[in-house]
């Protein structure tokens, strides 16, 4: 069985944040939720300054702190390496979120249907699109996935539950790449089977030096980075996004 992983080439990332938007539209995540987030960094002092970028999906750790602490098994590891969230089982205790050192979890603080950017209840629009709350609703997100048949895809599913990057599990099962990897203009984001030595990701990891985030935390992320270096205290975030809902 394939065990998926992601390899992000920071030497190729232009920091455009297309992956962030593609993720949002694909997964219908509510306002303020960035399952994929792109850090824009600078380091050094003028004129010896360097600008670089780092996309941050969920790390889908093999030794995932979030899975370990989930009291009800809503957060779990799939055999294909994905760290999934069963939004039907989640009780909304947010323990996974405080346990995660990467800050990738997003809780539905609000009723999601009231949290999609625009007034979709506008009567003129309602006449055209009916009572759809996310008018670009992706129909794949409500299905159950995996042999365990659990509903783990998409965002904005219910008030009071936790959600995060799913590696676009609904796309994987159709044979497609995650939305971020598919959209990346410079193809900095590669996705594939890390167990298959012939896969593009495995080859990249053989060929190039790489690192993982917070390796010292022992979480064994399935997301690898090529190029640049792990962010350290001298790295400063620029054009940061802090949206509260």
């Amino acid at each position: 069985m394939a065990r998926y992983g992601m390899v992000i080439d920071l030497d190729k990332c232009t920091g455009c944040r297309a992956c962030m938007v593609a993720c949002k539209v694909e997964n219908n995540t509510p306002q303020g939720h960035f399952w994929m987030y792109v850090f824009r960094f600078e380091e050094g002092e003028y004129p010896n300054t360097r600008t670089w970028f780092m996309p941050r999906p969920c790390m889908h750790c093999d030794n995932a702190p979030c899975v370990k602490v989930c009291p009800v098994g809503a957060r779990y590891k799939r055999l294909d390496g994905l760290t999934a969230t069963d939004f039907d089982r989640c009780i909304g205790c947010r323990y996974c979120e405080v346990a995660c050192p990467y800050g990738v979890n997003y809780f539905n603080w609000k009723k999601p249907e009231g949290n999609y950017y625009l007034d979709w209840d506008d009567p003129d629009l309602a006449e055209i699109v009916g009572d759809e709350k996310v008018v670009y609703a992706n129909p794949d997100l409500d299905k159950a996935y995996g042999p365990e048949k659990r509903r783990i895809a998409g965002g904005g599913q219910a008030k009071g539950v936790m959600e995060k990057c799913t590696f676009c599990v609904h796309r994987l099962e159709k044979g497609l790449q995650p939305a971020c990897a598919a959209i990346c203009p410079t193809q900095a984001i590669k996705f594939g089977d890390l167990d298959d030595p012939e896969s593009e990701v495995s080859q990249l990891l053989r060929e190039k030096p790489h690192f993982r985030l917070l390796e010292e935390a022992g979480t064994s992320p399935r997301v690898f980075y090529i190029g640049q270096h792990a962010p350290n205290p001298s790295v400063r975030q620029i054009e940061e996004i802090t949206v509260k809902v």
Binding site: Y37, V98, G160
Partner: peptide, 17 residues
């Protein structure tokens, strides 16, 4: 929902869950 509390997500929401 808990949007009425002061709690928010760690990370891009710069909050405390």
């Amino acid at each position: 929902g808990e949007v009425v509390t002061g709690m928010r997500d760690i990370g891009t929401m710069a909050g405390a869950p």
